[in-house]
């Protein structure tokens, strides 16, 4: 993990414009990612995790216009301001994507085999026949039984877990260098979640891919990520190696998230220790620290000026809370 980073994100700010509103779900985010490394982006729903990864690659739903500023360098190519042609040539080939809901992400009217094979055919420049063989290999690789029959099946004939395996097969079909997984286990049964996560880690190790894992589940972070980036209201709260951030959080929001995880020694029936309050509604950028209204440690002045992300007492960890890290 000493090589040059393959992904360098710097001061990434994204404004989303829709028919009804304008919001800024991503505000000055910076991070780097190396080959083989996994970065988890953590936050509550609506904190801008997904947009951070998808908007710079031009993957926004119809009816949403993303204004992206800052810089996203992928293997030396600047993505911010790049044309659709450039972005498309990267998607699928160099960067693979896994979506949250495997129920709706697969095309209901097409055979699974075709949906996998077309990626290989397009990006690896192989014949349709070879692509089909590759699809078969991939089906086996993601651990599905009876691969030959699976190729001819349609998504509605599979369970959620199997569909997510298909989605993984699609995302890695062209051997990308970076995999973006958006809540890959959220929509699945608890028992299946662990299997899918293990599969992802396995494949990542085998292909030496970098991975961005978007999640709100601290358990997933602990199990899969090398480093973690905690987002709150579109801003970075804390960044650092997983083992350090989870053990000794240095931002009140991270502390709250970790504190909310149920523990083995909790008395049965004890009160749930969630974060009180709700995340702010996105809109105009909030003056000062966005977490102030929910923060136990807030002092006068927190709401006045925006706290910068600073190196903490541990040089590997950065946090945006001057109150706890003075």
């Amino acid at each position: 993990m000493t090589a040059e980073p393959i992904l360098i994100v710097k001061d990434l700010t994204i404004d989303l414009l829709t028919a009804h509103t304008a919001v800024r779900p991503v505000d000055s985010i910076s991070y780097q990612l190396r080959r083989g490394e996994t970065l988890a982006i953590v936050g509550e729903s609506g904190s801008g995790k997904t947009v951070t990864c998808f908007a710079p690659l031009g993957l926004m739903p119809v009816g949403v216009k993303a204004d992206v500023s800052g810089s996203v360098l992928f293997e030396g190519t600047e993505l911010v301001g790049a044309n659709e042609e450039t972005l498309r040539s990267l998607r699928g080939k160099s960067i693979g994507f896994i979506f949250q809901d495997p129920m709706s992400a697969l095309n209901p009217a097409r055979r699974i085999g075709h949906q996998i094979a077309e990626v290989a055919e397009l990006h690896l420049g192989i014949t349709p026949r070879a692509a089909e063989a590759r699809a078969l290999d991939l089906i086996k690789m993601v651990g599905m039984s009876d691969p030959n029959a699976r190729l001819k099946q349609y998504p509605h004939e599979l369970s959620g877990g199997l569909r997510q395996r298909v989605m993984i097969a699609i995302s890695i079909a062209a051997e990308p260098k970076l995999l973006v997984a958006d809540e890959p286990t959220t929509a699945l049964d608890v028992t299946v979640q662990a299997q899918i996560l293990r599969l992802l880690k396995e494949i990542q190790a085998r292909m030496d891919m970098a991975m961005v894992l978007i999640t709100h589940d601290m358990g997933v972070v602990a199990g899969a990520a090398d480093r973690v980036l905690v987002m709150y209201a579109g801003r970075q709260a804390e960044v650092g190696p997983t083992e350090k951030v989870l053990v000794a959080p240095r931002h009140p929001y991270t502390m709250g998230l970790i504190d909310a995880i149920p523990r083995r020694d909790d008395a049965i029936g004890s009160r749930f220790r969630g974060l009180s309050g709700l995340p702010p509604i996105l809109g105009a950028p909030i003056k000062g620290c966005a977490f102030t209204p929910r923060c136990r440690h807030s002092v006068e002045g927190c709401g006045a000026q925006r706290p910068p992300l600073r190196t903490t007492a541990d040089p590997a960890v950065m946090a945006a809370c001057p109150v706890l890290n003075a």
Binding site: D15, L17, T18, A19, T21, A22, R24, P61, V62, G63, K65, D67, A284, P285
Partner: peptide, 20 residues
């Protein structure tokens, strides 16, 4: 059905983001 934003709508929304 959602449809892509028209140029005028984008301009109007950009005025909002510019004011931020």
């Amino acid at each position: 059905v959602p449809k892509p934003l028209g140029a005028r709508l984008v301009a109007a929304r950009r005025r909002i983001t510019a004011s931020w």
